[in-house]
Design a protein around this nucleic acid. Structure first.
Lengths: 185, 185
DNA sequence: CGCCGGTGTTCGTCAAGCCGAACAAGGAGA
DNA sequence: TCTCCTTGTTCGGCTTGACGAACACCGGCG
């Protein structure tokens, strides 16, 4: 994660988002319930807003809070070839023959291309708090989800469940495959 | 996006993350360069911290800024069956035969299962600022990426590029398929 | 028991964010 | 041009966040 000072980012983001929505400084301040002088100072880079102030602006601008403070992503292409992927040992993952497809450092999510063969269900313990897992089946059938309440999924089915508590994966057909997105916020 | 007051969330998140890292209140305040009295009031729910204060804490705790202000996700399973998916008309998307696999309302990303046939490259215009696109090829070959600098991808290859400026998709082989994740923050 | 190093809390002071009003600047129209 | 309205900017004041010190609390130890 980029750790440059958020104040300069806030100044740029506020002006950019305000102009994107097409609001005037006066009108945005009125809707957010803050003084337009405050908003003016924020957009000029001076000031260190409180969370409540910035929150009110994010609500009116209808943007995620983090977009106002986190600098925008780098404008380049990053490629991870199939041959460069990291192979997770099967004893460290809840699915057999797992391949990590891509997990760029500093990113908010990992993209896994996983495969599995029929066998006993394998359990995954809780990841760090706030993690969400997304499963999109591309081949075969899977039974996956939170421990105690897994769902059965066929090709093209999608499931989404919290990854910060115990959950299970189980391939039901040979050569079952799926894309797994682990989202960290 | 949830729009409940962030102050209560901040209080809970700070204490949770601090205990996760295993720091004392005194030590965390010292490392972050803030008064421990300030941190104490924040964890008790009183107070409305400035961005600089919260930022310093997020850096030391090594968590994304948004995890401190956004409430945690709901702890349930959400399933979207293949038959329930939304079909995007081909004239609205830059790839032929596109299927939207999953885009839960309020989420920070969309998960698309896309297919394409050889033909002219199709252009996608810029989405909302801050969007990042992730492409994981599951069949065939694609040439995709920012306009002017696309990359060629085979099965298993992964590419990541900004979605908030013009970019292109082009299937190079029949029955090419890929998973596309559009991340909004 | 008395002392100590540690926890997290409350209190008074100072600085700074937030506010409202007053301000200069740029059009649109009569 | 003169006026009126709206744009965004600066200027005192009040409010509040941030700070440091002093505080109460707990567990270990001689």
């Amino acid at each position: 994660m980029d750790r440059t000072s958020p104040l300069a980012t806030i100044a740029l983001s506020l002006r950019r988002e305000r102009e994107r929505v097409g609001l005037t400084l006066t009108e945005l301040a009125r809707r957010a319930g803050i003084a337009k002088s405050t908003l003016s100072q924020l957009e000029s880079g001076a000031g260190n807003p409180s969370v409540e102030t910035l929150w009110a602006l994010a609500v009116v601008l209808d943007v995620p809070f983090s977009r106002l403070v986190d600098p925008p992503s780098a404008p380049s292409v990053q490629v991870v070839r199939a041959s460069e992927r990291i192979v997770i040992p099967s004893d460290q993952a809840p699915f057999t023959g797992t391949l990590v497809a891509a997990c760029p450092p500093g990113a908010r999510r990992d993209l896994h291309l996983i495969t599995g063969e029929p066998g006993p269900a394998r359990d995954a313990h809780a990841h760090i708090p706030g993690t969400t897992e997304h499963l999109l089946v591309t081949a075969g059938r899977w039974r996956a989800g939170p421990a105690g309440a897994p769902v059965e999924l066929g090709v093209g089915d999608y499931a989404r469940f919290p990854g910060d508590r115990p959950h299970t994966y189980e391939a039901l057909e040979p050569a079952s495959a799926a894309v797994l997105v682990m989202e960290y916020v």
